[in-house]
Write a protein that binds this DNA or RNA. Structure first.
Length: 627
DNA sequence: GCAAGGTC
């Protein structure tokens, strides 16, 4: 029997061929520069048995939606794009060649086995491969097409995946197709409307090559930046007042903080201060309580892509894009698990200790790993996210760093240390708190003492939790202590900061805008479109909207849409994600979801067009306000 | 000329 295996990317095809072929395979080049075809034999067991195998790959998505030529820009009313037919096509020469290689290689195959990544997109890419293969070879059907399930490239795992395939999950395929169709219809329609409108109404305002694009991810991303900008600009600093006392005992000065919130009314604060000052012995305070409570600092949750990007941005100042690239390269080398995951909970049956064991020989953290094996192991915390495709990011093999790029080394170290931290105990400490009364007012001071570092021993680079530098003198309850200072102080509320990239990533992630692989691209896109510019502010850079970006958001926010739908807010996109999940779980069908959301977008389009002067007016307003 | 999603 002859089997054609197809992976999502060339690196996976190479690794899997190496494992299944046991190192004995021959390589042929294909009509695409990056893609190689590997021939070998492998015993799949079961009804397949010993097979001749060709392993190849595609380059991610290669078939996409295309509108027929009569719907090109300027040749139809954009509104028609919501219902125009869509055909499958190839965007460029490369994807056409990718398809050609699949068609050729499938010709003499008895079976097709899909080896794309095990996520929703992978399932859809698998279906594209199936379509091309079955068009070229009628013996390949959806029923006899196999789908390997794997989440990392460790040898025994890959062999097990080859021997226990399932079928393509069409529900996931339909969910992805639904998103694709809605995005191209709404994206093209609104982009043409906005571009043509703003160019004709604001002559000389926009350059010829400018595109004012709408996208279901671009707009909410822009919306986050604008919201923050407005909050900063509208911020008015307010003074507030508070009481503060400092004691002196054993020559140690101890600052006590008022337990009441700061007051925005000066008179009230002054009266309270005067009350205290009018007491006899107003230069003494009384210790009324003393506590010492055990406290913990929790170890981190199992590592997701976005968390990895956030930690790397904070600790190493790496961009989200660079972090993902480094992690992807470590994955294809078999060093860490699949780095695109939303799951922050390890599967119950996973043998974590075997992964720790592999790290015991490492010169930096081997000893620590050994101590976990020798009894200090503690089961990881469980988060509430699960993408049902990949476990949290964890190291697969032990690597001394030789031959790795600097960025890869950093990311590898982060992944290992994070994993070991997850399998350790929380840090333990004790928090001492002393309460003091001065007049009728109550003040407290506290100090932390770290007793057991536990996970922090391996995780110091990424998180600090230290004993307080200040020492609290040995106060006794009931004791009267001399005050060194007792003051009425004035403070000022400070404005929020402009949006940083790290914050924007966190917001997009929390709101389901884009995927781990595309979040960085959307941030890039709204800058290319000149909706947003990046400014340096001190040591970090922040994102602020341009006039165009402000104008668009203000314009859309001033149009009243049905059911309070907002195109610049994340809720619409989140709704769509929910609908897609329902397709995956079998509770809705692709046509149902498309009908519902196309109707909604059409209504929004009609209202936008009817109120197009609002968009123009708001954009002009922004320009005028800026002078 | 236009989206978002893969990957190179």
């Amino acid at each position: 029997m002859k089997i054609l295996c197809v992976a999502e990317k060339p690196s996976i095809a190479k690794s899997v061929a190496g494992i299944l072929g046991g190192g004995r395979f021959s390589v042929r080049s294909s009509c695409v520069k990056y893609i190689k075809n590997y021939d070998f034999s492998f015993n799949f067991g079961g009804s397949l048995g010993q097979c001749e195998v060709t392993m190849t790959s595609v380059l991610g998505n290669f078939r996409n939606n295309i509108f027929p030529d009569e719907y090109n820009w300027g040749r139809c009313e954009p509104m028609q794009l919501f219902t125009a037919p869509l055909k499958k096509g190839y965007e460029n020469k490369t994807s056409q060649s990718v398809a050609k290689n699949i068609a050729t290689e499938s010709q003499d195959a008895d079976r097709l086995m899909i080896w794309t990544d095990c996520d929703r997109e992978g399932e859809s890419i698998g279906h594209q491969i199936f379509e091309v293969a079955s068009e070229s070879n009628r013996r390949i059907t959806l029923e006899n097409t196999l789908r390997a399930q794997f989440s990392h490239l460790e040898r025994s795992h890959v062999i097990h995946a080859a021997k226990t395939p399932r079928h393509l999950d069409m529900k996931q395929v339909y969910a992805v197709q639904t998103r694709g169709e809605l995005d191209i219809r709404s994206g093209f329609a609104f982009t043409r409307l906005l571009t043509d409108l703003l160019k004709s109404e604001i002559p000389g305002g926009l350059e010829d090559k400018t595109i004012v694009s709408y996208g279901s991810c671009q707009f909410p991303t822009l919306g986050f930046v604008v919201d923050r900008y407005i909050r900063v600009r509208r911020f008015i600093s307010e003074p507030f007042w508070y009481l503060s006392v400092t004691t002196i005992k054993n020559r140690i000065h101890t600052l006590f903080t008022w337990t009441k919130p700061s007051m925005f009314d000066r008179m009230t604060a002054t009266v309270l201060y005067a009350n205290c000052m009018s007491q006899p012995r107003n230069d003494f305070g009384k210790i009324i309580a003393k506590q010492e409570n055990p406290t913990s600092n929790y170890k981190p949750l199992p590592l997701t892509t976005v968390e990895l990007q956030k930690i790397a941005a904070r600790t190493y100042r790496m961009t989200a894009k660079d972090t993902l690239k480094a992690a992807e390269d470590l994955y294809t080398k078999g060093i860490i698990s699949y780095p695109r995951t939303e799951t922050d909970k390890f599967p119950a049956k996973m043998d974590l200790k075997s992964f720790i064991q592999r790290q015991t020989g490492h010169r930096e953290w081997g000893q620590y790993a050994q101590s976990l094996i020798d009894g200090k192991f503690s089961p990881p915390r469980s988060g509430r996210h699960n993408d049902e495709a990949h476990p949290p990011i964890h190291p697969v093999s032990c690597h001394d760093g030789g031959g790795l790029l600097v960025k890869e080394k950093k990311i590898y170290e982060l992944v290992v240390r994070h994993f070991l931290a997850c399998c350790s105990d929380d840090a333990k400490g004790s928090l001492s708190k002393v309460t003091l009364q001065w007049g009728d007012e109550i003040f407290t001071t506290s100090a932390l003492e770290v007793k057991e570092e536990n996970y922090l021993e391996i995780y110091k680079q990424y998180r600090t939790w230290k004993s307080s530098a200040k020492k609290i003198p040995p106060f006794e309850v009931g004791e009267e202590v001399k005050l060194q200072k007792a003051e009425l102080k004035e403070g000022k509320t400070s404005p929020p900061n402009y949006m940083t990239e790290t914050e924007l990533i966190a917001l997009m992630d929390a709101n389901g805008i884009g995927t781990d692989a595309t979040i960085a691209e959307h941030i890039d896109k709204i800058q290319q479109r000149e909706y947003v510019t990046s400014l340096r502010e001190g040591s970090k850079s922040v994102l602020v909207p341009s006039e165009l970006g402000m104008g668009i958001v203000q314009g859309f926010d001033n149009i009243e849409f049905n059911e309070n739908i907002s195109l610049t807010k994340p809720f619409l996109r989140k709704d769509m994600e929910n609908e897609l999940s329902m397709i995956c779980s079998g509770n809705k069908t692709k046509p149902q979801v498309i009908e519902k959301l196309v109707n909604m977008y059409q209504e929004a389009y009609v209202l936008t067009k009817r109120n197009q002067q609002t968009l123009v007016r708001e954009y002009r307003n922004v320009i005028r306000e800026n002078g």
